[in-house]
Amino acid sequence: MIDRIKELMEAKGLTSTQLADGVDVPRAVVSHILSGRNKPSLDVMVKILSVHRDVNTEWLLLGEGSMYAKNFSSQITSSNSEKAAAEAENLIDTIPRASPSLENIPSGKVVPNVQPAAAQASKTLERIVYFYSDKTFEAYMPG
Rank of each mutant, 00 (worst) to 15 (best):
N56M: 13
G36H: 01
I92T: 07
P40W: 10
N90L: 14
L14A: 07
L8E: 05
I5T: 02
I2T: 08
K135L: 00
K123D: 11
N113H: 12
I33G: 03
T94F: 01
R127E: 11
T77S: 14
G22Q: 03
T77L: 02
D21W: 09
P96V: 01
L8G: 00
K39A: 06
E10I: 00
V111T: 15
F137C: 09
I5N: 04
M45S: 08
I5D: 02
T77W: 10
K6Y: 00
E58K: 11
P142K: 00
R127K: 14
P142W: 01
S107H: 07
I2K: 08
M141P: 00
A119W: 10
L8T: 03
K123R: 14
L14I: 03
A85V: 10
V25W: 02
A119V: 14
L60R: 00
N90W: 00
L14N: 05
A69H: 05
D54A: 11
G108Q: 10
A121V: 15
I76R: 09
R127N: 11
S16K: 12
A28L: 14
K47P: 03
A98D: 11
N38D: 08
E89W: 09
Q120N: 12
G63F: 01
L34M: 11
G143W: 04
I2H: 07
V30I: 15
N56E: 11
G22M: 06
H32E: 13
P40A: 09
E126P: 06
K39D: 08
R27T: 15
K47F: 06
V44G: 02
L14G: 08
A117E: 06
R127D: 08
H32V: 02
V30W: 02
S122T: 05
A11T: 04
T17P: 00
V114H: 05
P26R: 09
V129I: 14
L14P: 05
A84F: 10
R53I: 13
S41Q: 07
Q18I: 09
S50F: 10
P40L: 04
S35L: 04
S122W: 05
L91Q: 08
W59C: 00
Y68C: 04
A85G: 04
Y130G: 01
D24V: 06
N104A: 13
R4N: 01
Y68T: 05
P106I: 14
A139V: 15
A28I: 14
G63R: 04
P100A: 00
E82V: 15
R4V: 09
K6N: 08
L19W: 01
S101N: 12
E82Q: 14
L60G: 01
N80G: 12
A88V: 10
P112I: 02
I76S: 05
Q75C: 09
L42G: 14
D24P: 03
Y132H: 04
